[in-house]
């Protein structure tokens, strides 16, 4: 029964990574196609003050139909804390897995270009190691629109991440809005290496974290990042995506350490 419930939960829920020529830090309205099976391996590393956070994820995506895809991510998380005069402390473990459903509800094809829009629903499943994982799910809903062509790409998206309350504690909900533009400098032949450069602008609003219905004054804020990226496809079954998210504006509430650069590397194999 538990397995059935878990499966049902996975089907109706979701999270955040991507497909094919999707930018690294945002959603893209893509679908892998009927029967397509993608395997993504990603590594994310970020810093904030004395904390370092590293997450390695394995994501499976399956194309149920031309326009519907389901996915499942299994993350391994490692948190490192450094404090002056104290020893480094490290906690690590399997974080909450994430599952998502993506529906490309509109698309228009022209010669050498595709315009599309998609909706994504996702959730974490609170079965991870409690040292790094919350005890309650985090839900996400997002929508993306974009254009892919032989030379240019552009994408926009908006996402909302809702954190459910966990033992009277609730991390702040997050709203994301992103825009990206991409350029393929040279279109090669079928088995040539294909390279696309992207530049993303990412906005994030984080609400106050709450404990027993009281806002934490030193939490939340508004953030703006710029993210240069490179996408390399050495064959038509493999895609390597690498990006750096650099904070360019931070308006934090109260007293908080500023966010630092985030690095992300994704290797995607298509079956």
């Amino acid at each position: 029964m538990k397995i059935i419930l878990l499966f049902a939960y996975l089907i109706i829920s979701c999270s955040g990574t991507a497909f094919a020529h999707a930018p690294v830090f945002m959603l893209a309205p893509e679908a892998p196609g009927k029967g397509a099976f993608d395997l993504h391996t990603s590594l994310t590393h970020s810093r904030k003050g004395d904390e370092r956070y590293t997450e390695a994820e394995l994501e499976f995506t399956y194309g149920i139909s031309r326009d519907f895809a389901v996915g499942f991510e299994a993350p391994f998380a490692r948190e490192e804390h450094y404090e002056e005069g104290e020893e480094q402390s490290v906690i690590q473990g399997i974080a909450n897995p994430k599952a998502f459903l993506q529906w490309r509800f509109w698309d228009r094809d022209t010669l050498g270009a595709k315009y599309s829009s998609a909706l994504r629903l996702g959730s974490t499943v609170p079965v991870g190691d409690k040292s790094v994982a919350r005890d309650k799910p985090t839900l996400m809903a997002g929508m993306a629109y974009g254009m892919e062509s032989l030379k240019w790409y552009y994408f926009i998206d908006a996402r909302y991440q809702y954190n459910t309350e966990d033992n009277n504690s609730k991390p702040g909900d997050k709203f994301f809005a992103d825009i990206a533009i991409g350029l393929r400098p040279r279109l090669g032949a079928l088995e040539d290496t294909d390279t696309v450069f992207f530049l993303e602008l990412n906005y994030m609003n984080e609400q106050y974290a709450r404990t027993r219905d009281v806002n934490n004054p030193n939490s939340g804020g508004d953030f703006l990042f710029i993210s240069p990226e490179i996408l390399i496809s050495p064959s038509n079954r493999v895609m390597i995506r690498a990006g750096t998210q650099i904070p360019i504006y931070q308006e934090t509430n109260g007293v908080q350490e500023p966010k630092d650069i985030t690095y992300k590397l994704v290797v995607e194999l298509r079956y």
Binding site: A20, H21, E30, P32, G33, K34, G35, A36, G63, D107, D109, T110, L111, G112, A113, K114, E148, S149, L150, R184, L190, E191, D194, V196, S233, N236, R237, V238, M239, R270, Y271
Partner: peptide
């Protein structure tokens, strides 16, 4: 129509 990259078009090859 809609073909914009070889990686995306792997679905055809499959």
């Amino acid at each position: 129509d809609g073909l914009a990259c070889y990686f995306c078009a792997y679905g055809l090859e499959r």
